[in-house]
Amino acid sequence: MHNGGVTTAPTARDAVPEACCTSLTSEALSVEDAQRFAQLLKAVAEPTRLRLVSLIAAQDNKEACVCDLTEPVGLGQPTVSHHLKILVDAGILHREKRGVWAYYSIVPGALERAAAVLSPGR
Rank of each mutant, 00 (worst) to 15 (best):
L52I: 05
V66A: 12
A43K: 08
A115N: 04
L55N: 11
V16G: 08
T25A: 08
L52N: 06
G5H: 11
A115H: 06
F37M: 15
P72H: 11
L111W: 05
L111R: 06
G91N: 09
H2W: 12
V100M: 12
V31D: 15
M1C: 11
P72N: 07
G4I: 10
I106V: 03
A15E: 06
V31E: 15
H94W: 05
K42R: 14
T79M: 05
Q59R: 08
E18I: 11
Y103W: 11
H2N: 15
R13T: 12
A90N: 09
K97E: 13
A12L: 13
K62D: 12
A57K: 06
P10G: 09
V107C: 04
A57M: 03
E27T: 15
D89E: 08
V6F: 13
A90H: 10
V100G: 12
E18V: 14
G5L: 05
P120I: 03
K85Q: 13
P108E: 14
S30F: 08
Y104G: 00
V80D: 00
P72L: 08
A15K: 07
K42E: 15
P72T: 10
T48D: 08
G91C: 07
D14P: 01
R122D: 06
G76I: 03
Y104S: 00
P120M: 02
A116H: 07
C21L: 08
I56G: 01
L75F: 13
F37H: 15
E32L: 08
R36E: 15
S105L: 03
L93Q: 12
A116D: 12
E96T: 01
L52S: 05
I106L: 02
F37E: 15
L118T: 01
L50T: 05
A43F: 07
Q39W: 10
S105C: 03
T22M: 00
V53Q: 03
Q35R: 04
V88H: 12
V73W: 07
E112W: 00
I106G: 00
L87Y: 04
L55A: 09
P17A: 14
G91H: 08
S23K: 12
D68V: 02
V31P: 00
D89L: 00
N61D: 13
A102H: 10
G4S: 15
M1Q: 10
Y103D: 01
V73D: 10
L50P: 01
E32Y: 10
A115M: 06
S54M: 07
A102L: 02
